[in-house]
Design a binder for these strands. Sequence first.
RNA 1: GGCUGGGUAGCUCAGUUGGUAGAGCAGCGGACUGAAAAUCCGCGUGUCAGGGGUUCGACUCCCUUCCCCGCCA
Length: 316
Amino acid sequence: MSERLPGPVACVCGPTASGKSAVADLVASSVGCPVVSVDAMQVYRSMDIGTAKTPASERAAELLMVDVAGFDEPYSVALFQRDARACVDRSLARHGCAVLCGGTGLYLDAVIDDMDFPAGDAASKSRARYEALANEQGPQALWDLLRQRDPKSAEAVHPHNVRRVVRALELADQGASYAERTRHLRRRKPRYDALIWALVPERDALYARIDARVDEMFSAGLVDEVKALADAGIRKSPTASQAIGYKEVLAALDGQCTLDEAKEAVKRSTRRYAKRQLSWIKRDGRATVIPMGETSPEQAAWIIEGQLRRSREARR
RNA sequence: GGCUGGGUAGCUCAGUUGGUAGAGCAGCGGACUGAAAAUCCGCGUGUCAGGGGUUCGACUCCCUUCCCCGCCA
């Protein structure tokens, strides 16, 4: 008999602009626990408009794992895993359940599954060295190096994917193997008793919502927010400066395009991001899909609350 | 009304002496364990405006209808 997993942990996911924040807030306030955000960019302070953080005044439940890092610190999955799990464990201890909400698939898996990241620094020295090699001799040369060092991992990574090739080499330096760590979902062990829902709007409706939301961000002052961050040095950050909405406006501020073009670029990037999120959700396969065309946020929350309640009762 | 130029993928357009069509952007699908809103891989999605004719064969040539741009009335 295996030991019972801690839980239940309700995970509300879905593509950007699917309405998951509102739904998670309803669920959490109804059961009386906080919402733990699972979002790679909302962790950064001062990035509010572009990351669509729900203002405190519009929230009924407390929101955790937001504003936990400065935009100048490179945050990462491993740090997120550590910090978010602490939030989840505290919520389980105090409230008997936890509610997660977010669209960053890798971050969600890192929290709820038994993924482990090798101890040690985030390999900054060797990373720079390998990147330089790729720049000087080309991606293929770097991949060839990986093939010599760790053929199995080379097989698992496309030669053009310099970022992954670099990471695989870093792992090889630490005596670990990218290929071994990259196991399919099915072979991972869950860490929590997780219930996962995916809010999925129809594609046309989703894209219309994305367009509207980007327009709102610009009228709410996104450009000023980015200007302030640019003055504060966000361009030096390898992570925060790549956030959708920020990188495009930064390009416009640098004179590479007009602000109108930047706005269109933000919409396009967001659509593509939403597609990648849907891809992740589909592959994962664990989520119960709630089609948002026919379902209001209140109805979705009601469905989730019901299942969450049953799960809590079953644990007693 | 007359005369030009044009109607080809969602958009902008290319298409060579007639052999059922291809670029960019958009889009679609996928992978993904320390940058993940990142990074990478794959895929043309088409009544060639409609109808007729010539031809073995028409997006290509001819006739005709419709629509758009421009110029002249």
